[in-house]
């Protein structure tokens, strides 16, 4: 996890392992913990927006992944599923540490690849998080750019008289 933080200086990874008890929704718990939690061993230069949280519940035998707003444009739900799937075989046998390592290894691979893609085409990822344009503004824009058709602009058709 430290090496991950070295390779990705903006981010950090944390793992929560424990029984969630009555909290049956793993996603809700991850969402709450990453928004409200304070990670003491993480520097102040790395806010929770740059965090990736893996929650493992050994009792209910379920695991989930939550990430902050920094990764929002670059990380998708499919990527998190791929990372967790790498650990599935280990977690089935109760080998949580090995599973986490496998998962982090794949996470590093995905993020490094995505970083290169972002460098090549940053607009593509920026568009994913850009604020959608309101419908009224869009109509106004279309009307503003519209100009009436002048007669001279119409091409004369030289028709053939029957």
């Amino acid at each position: 996890m430290e090496r991950f933080g070295v390779s990705f200086p903006q981010m950090f990874v944390s793992v929560y392992t424990g029984s969630l008890g009555e909290i049956s929704n793993l996603r809700q718990f991850g969402f709450w913990l990453l928004n409200r939690g304070v990670f003491e061993d993480v520097g102040v230069e790395k806010p929770n927006e740059a965090g990736i949280l893996i929650v493992i519940d050994p009792d209910s035998k379920a695991a989930g992944m939550t990430f902050g707003y920094l990764l929002d444009p670059f990380f998708e739900e499919q990527d998190t599923f791929d990372c967790l799937s790498r650990a599935h075989a280990h977690w089935l046998e109760g080998l949580y540490c090995e599973g986490i390592l496998r998962s982090l290894r794949h996470l590093r691979k995905v993020l490094s690849k995505r970083c290169r893609q972002v460098r090549r085409d940053p607009e593509k990822y920026e568009r994913k998080v850009a604020t959608p344009v309101a419908v009224g503004d869009l109509v106004r824009k279309i009307r503003g750019e519209h100009r009436p058709v002048v007669a001279s602009d119409v091409p004369k058709e030289e028709g053939v008289e029957p």
Binding site: Y69, D72, T80
Partner: peptide
């Protein structure tokens, strides 16, 4: 309403 994160990823079960 999340101030830091709303990236809800996947959840898998290994039961």
């Amino acid at each position: 309403g999340g101030s830091h994160a709303a990236g809800i990823g996947a959840v898998i079960s290994f039961a």
